[in-house]
């Protein structure tokens, strides 16, 4: 029953998504908002402002460098999470104290 309702919700959602694609800009349109609002600055100025001819690197490491710090932190988090789960578990009752031992 719950599954049926969930499938119904997914179906409705897909339908809505298909109908509302008409609100999106046309494919590969050079005049779409995404291509005309923020990004021209990156293409025009990144060489003189950041010294990097690779615009993606300029955006990644300089204009939005703070995002990349977050991204590196995500990798670090995943690394220590995997180590905590796989290696640092206790031998007998593998949980933090206060968890549910079996």
């Amino acid at each position: 029953m719950t599954r049926l309702l969930t499938f119904l919700a997914i179906g409705l959602m897909s339908l809505m998504l298909f109908i509302t694609t008409s609100g999106l800009p046309m494919l590969f349109d050079p005049n779409s908002p995404a291509a005309t609002h923020v990004s021209p600055r990156y293409i025009e100025k990144s060489r003189e402002e950041t010294g990097s001819p690779n615009f993606v690197t300029a955006v990644l490491a300089d204009y939005r460098g703070y995002d990349t710090l977050g991204e590196t932190t995500v990798i670090f988090t995943a690394g220590i999470a995997a180590v905590l789960l796989l290696r640092a578990a206790r031998k007998h009752s593998d949980c933090l104290p206060g968890g549910d031992e079996e």
Partner: peptide, 26 residues
């Protein structure tokens, strides 16, 4: 501007790819 594609989504998606990889790892 018209000769190059938009670099911003590429930079954003590098982040998203890394996030997806990390989630999969965990």
């Amino acid at each position: 501007v018209e000769n190059y594609i938009n670099p911003l989504p590429h930079a954003l998606m590098l982040t998203a790819i890394v996030v997806s990889l990390s989630t999969t790892g965990v």
